[in-house]
Write a protein that binds this DNA or RNA. Structure first.
Length: 571
DNA sequence: GCCGTTTTCGGCCCGACTGTTTTCAGTCG
């Protein structure tokens, strides 16, 4: 049983206990244990075999016993017992937004619906409003909640959420009652999928600004309208929370609403130990406000190094900041090239020269042209002859553009059996060979893992592109044992890619960190098919930062000479 | 259920908005 599966069971136990209205701290203990297990860098089975489960903070004697049982038998009697005692419909009902344990239980006790459809019918028959504490508004919010639940996870890919947020902010700069505003929340932390958009606004006239926001042309529906918070849903269906604070509260509000929640909880614990209190309105000592002008100062007050937003996930960053051992995260400025690009030679939009000029203009020292390989017919994959022809154009451009350097490469398909789309004699001619999967996504995990590992064993391959094949919000990625793939990359001395496209962000943050810990070189590429999308490098960098990468861990943050040497390494 | 340079018992982070109430419970982040 994997860490993830154990975490899932622990979290489910927490949910069941909550419905049973067990001690809230017991519920939290299970939630915390689930979170810790999910973020654990080590394999639980290993820890168990070494008798070290109890060393994990949040795992005590009781939860240790549950984990042991899960690892040994694949199930847990306590969990099964809880499930037997809680009707399925109750578990479904608490998943409805705006419906919590109390409402769900009351409705179940009085009206006993057996499905969400049934619940919907009860609302339409106006039976919910007869229950104590419930009225017509409650009925309406249940209907809307069921609708939301059915429309899916409600999460939006970072690229979409970020552009929505920036669009809204741009329009609001004109409003004269607004002194300052900034995007916070998971968009600021650069999370790949975003639940809602948080925008912090400093103003002296919160009520007036709230009214203006509620009438914003992008707003389809106002969910809440208070003095410090306005919640809306936009036409795209994305929820946006505006927080209205004074100038003096702006910094702490921005920090608070950047989160994550778990990170904040950790900080408040530390604050409390130091007899301080920290909330969205400031840092307090004995009810007295301590002035802070920057987030850096908040961390300083708590005896911590400044923690960048991308790391604020309670994934070990607080401990690292306390001991002064936070990584110096890679920045967009560190990036010196892009090693996965397409041109009109295959399915790109721009010419080779246009791509090169655009890359040069971004201040890059180098780039790699890696058009598709011959079997990817739909994308105009290149035959051996065309590939050699393209090489001649690259050589000519290299003479003209020096010292800027174009690496002649190819994105070679990994075929079903793990072989590559060209013979080795062809691959050895290339400056860089990227391997990637573009077909047969529904293979069994075992087969897919073997397929990719075999490709990595080819001596001419430098790099594995978009290693899981996921498309955010659209396609979960193929079944593959990513740990085994990373092990193979490490053994073969190959690099792995962070694909910067906001549609992909693949590898994802957790796997990036795993790869770094294994010492695997990581390349941040845009996979751009036109000059505009060269700008998507920022998304890859933010993902790299969430994976704790420093400039030294990133191949395309190295200078041209070092990259050249690395590319030749296996050849 | 977890945890301990105050504690093996008694703590456990903090606050806003809504709706249905007449002072607050429920839900959410």
């Amino acid at each position: 049983m994997t860490n993830l599966e154990v975490a899932w069971v622990l979290n489910d136990i927490a949910g069941l206990l909550e419905i049973g209205q067990d001690n809230v701290f017991k519920v939290r203990a299970y939630q915390k244990a689930a979170r810790v297990v999910r973020r654990l860098n080590e394999d639980l089975t290993m820890l168990y075999q070494e008798g070290r489960l109890r060393e994990v903070p949040g795992i005590g004697s009781n939860i240790e016993a549950k984990i042991k049982e899960l690892l040994e038998t694949g199930q847990c009697e306590y969990y099964l017992e809880l499930r037997r005692n809680v009707p399925e419909i109750l578990r479904e009902m608490v998943r409805i937004p705006n419906v919590g344990v109390k409402s769900a239980k009351l409705i179940y006790k009085e009206l006993a619906p057996d499905s969400l459809d049934d619940l919907q019918k009860l609302v339409q028959e106006r039976k919910i409003r007869k229950l104590s504490g419930m009225g017509s508004k409650t009925e309406l919010s249940i209907l809307r909640g069921i609708d939301l639940l059915r429309r899916g996870s409600g999460e939006t890919p970072l690229g979409v959420a970020k552009s929505v947020a920036e669009e809204i902010v741009k329009g609001m700069k004109e409003i004269k009652e607004i002194n300052r505003l900034e995007i916070a929340g998971s968009v600021r932390r650069g999370k790949d999928m975003v639940g809602d958009v948080d925008i912090i606004i400093a103003t002296d006239q919160p009520i007036k600004v709230g009214e203006i926001l509620a009438r914003h042309p992008q707003v389809r529906e106002v969910l809440a309208l208070g003095e410090t918070k306005v919640s809306v849903r936009t036409w795209l269906g994305i929820q946006v929370d505006f927080r209205l604070v004074t100038d003096k509260q702006f910094v702490t509000a921005k920090h608070h609403f950047t989160g994550s929640k778990e990170h904040n909880v950790r900080l408040r614990h530390i604050a409390k130990e130091m007899c301080l209190k920290i909330n969205e309105y400031g840092v307090w000592e004995d009810a007295e406000l301590i002035a802070v002008d920057s987030e850096k100062e908040i961390y300083q007050r708590l005896g911590l190094q400044y923690i960048p937003p991308e790391l604020r996930e309670d994934g070990g960053e607080v401990e690292a900041a306390a001991s002064g051992s936070l990584p110096e995260l890679v920045t967009l400025n560190d990036i010196k090239g892009d090693l996965h690009l397409h041109t009109r030679w295959s399915d790109g939009v721009n010419t080779l020269e246009e791509m090169a000029q655009a890359a040069k203009q971004r201040g890059y020292q180098y780039m790699a042209i890696t058009d598709h390989s011959r079997s990817l017919k739909i994308a105009g994959g290149l035959s051996i002859e065309r590939l050699r022809e393209q090489r001649r154009e690259i050589d000519e451009l290299n003479q003209r553009l020096a010292p800027f350097r174009i690496f002649a490469g190819v994105e070679a398909d990994i075929l079903t059996d793990g072989s590559l789309d060209y013979p080795d004699e062809m691959l050895r001619e290339m400056d860089i060979v990227i391997a990637s999967v573009h077909s047969r996504f529904r293979m069994e995990e075992d087969q897919m893992t073997k397929r990719i590992i075999k490709a990595l064993s080819n001596p001419w391959v430098n790099l594995l592109a978009h290693p899981t094949g996921r498309l955010l919000g659209r396609r979960p990625g193929y079944a593959v044992n990513i740990n085994a793939v990373l092990e193979a990359a490490k053994d073969e001395g190959k690099g792995v890619e962070i694909n910067s496209s906001p549609d992909r962000l693949d590898l994802r943050d957790e796997h990036v960190r795993l790869a770094k810990d294994m010492g695997i070189p990581i390349v941040i590429n845009t996979d751009a098919h036109d000059i505009v999308r060269l700008g998507e490098m920022a998304y890859g960098v933010i993902t790299a930062r969430r994976g704790w990468l420093e400039a030294g861990d990133v191949v395309n943050a190295w200078d041209r000479k070092k990259v050249s040497a690395w590319l030749k390494g296996g050849k």
